[in-house]
Design a protein around this nucleic acid. Sequence first.
DNA 1: ATAAAAATTTAGGCTTATCTAAAAAAATAT
DNA 2: ATATTTTTTTAGATAAGCCTAAATTTTTAT
Lengths: 221, 221
Amino acid sequence: MNNSFTEENYLKIIYHLSADLKGGEVSTNAVAEMAQTKAASVSDMLKKLSEKKLVNYQKYQGVTLTILGQTVALKVIRKHRLWEVFLLEKLHFTWDEVHIIAEELEHINSEKLVEKLDEFLGFPRFDPHGDPIPDQTGKLPATEYQNLNTLKVGQMGLLMGVSEHNPSFLKYLAKIGLTIGSQIQIIEVNEFDHSVSIKINGEIEHFLSFEASKNLLIMVN
Amino acid sequence: MNNSFTEENYLKIIYHLSADLKGGEVSTNAVAEMAQTKAASVSDMLKKLSEKKLVNYQKYQGVTLTILGQTVALKVIRKHRLWEVFLLEKLHFTWDEVHIIAEELEHINSEKLVEKLDEFLGFPRFDPHGDPIPDQTGKLPATEYQNLNTLKVGQMGLLMGVSEHNPSFLKYLAKIGLTIGSQIQIIEVNEFDHSVSIKINGEIEHFLSFEASKNLLIMVN
DNA sequence: ATAAAAATTTAGGCTTATCTAAAAAAATAT
DNA sequence: ATATTTTTTTAGATAAGCCTAAATTTTTAT
């Protein structure tokens, strides 16, 4: 019934990679890279997860999660994101520090702990990176965001999340004062390189590369 | 430099057992019983901990912690007790539920997390069971408590801790309304079986067996 | 269509932490 | 003081998760 720390991590990785591929088969190498391990180790594990009915796996054909595997992955993701909210809002960690610690906390086993934590945090629907928090049953809240680069001059919206989580990007956002909930207005779009000038909360004006703007998720007003 | 989850548990067990013996050597069997494992496994582990300079161990002669081993054990105990405070005060778990969950949380690795948690909780000096919380350097706050059974009729004090942590005892205390900080006054001592009648917070009168009173730690007013 | 390259799996080992069974040492009883 | 019992250690296995090297399958390029 219970899955190990390691098994949970593999399921989470397959979940994320498969989501990027819109549910398609994930390759052994892709999993190996994300798990920071070797392809041979992944093969072993996929065989094991397959026996436990957590993944669909045919050798040489890549892997996807079964319904059961998805449920397990979403439970881990729920815990990860709730702990991130806790670390940011209650312990005042910074945006870029929370991920690594949540990687450990997400494996603590106690249904009751998760539900009480959720309540303590006020049933948040999104984590500090703007990612949706699955509910107890694994359902994700509906999200209808646009990437910042799709907005036109003059349009406004709230920053609801980021689709790139590397610490240096997050640090950069924090430095220029962009946090979840910030209001963003497009001042100018540069046709040449698609970079944009934006106003944050009606005050500061800032310049963002196309690369950066693609990774900001906006709820248009 | 880092010690495994399992190593940390052995160190904690040796710390607690050795404290009961006022620093004396702990037997292999005692460790095995508390670790819920077999003596052979303990022998293996003691050899390993000894190589890492965490314990003093001569075969057949029992084991004690080195200074280094004590430091590691106290760091784990610090985390355990801080998490217990969090679970009780912030998430409203009951007294008897916190221990099992804290057994997992105590192994989360992040110095910064521990210090921020400590701050968030208001730098508590005692956990929900009344046990002292070591500081960052492993120092324990001074405690000068008496067991309830040593008090005379009429004496009063505050309940500061318990020296017996089994869930049924804790549940019993909760049921009769005894919590950390409760004021207790001795109304009557029965010479025959050393049972006592007490008043809790000046109100309710209650009867406690000698067995129970021995395990209540009181700060006399 | 076939050869070369890339991806994946298998085979065989290693480490950590566990176990059982047997051997050895220490403690206890006669 | 010696025999018996208890405690502890050693020896040899096992399971999880990882590794390298070799074999196999798939993909890509000619």
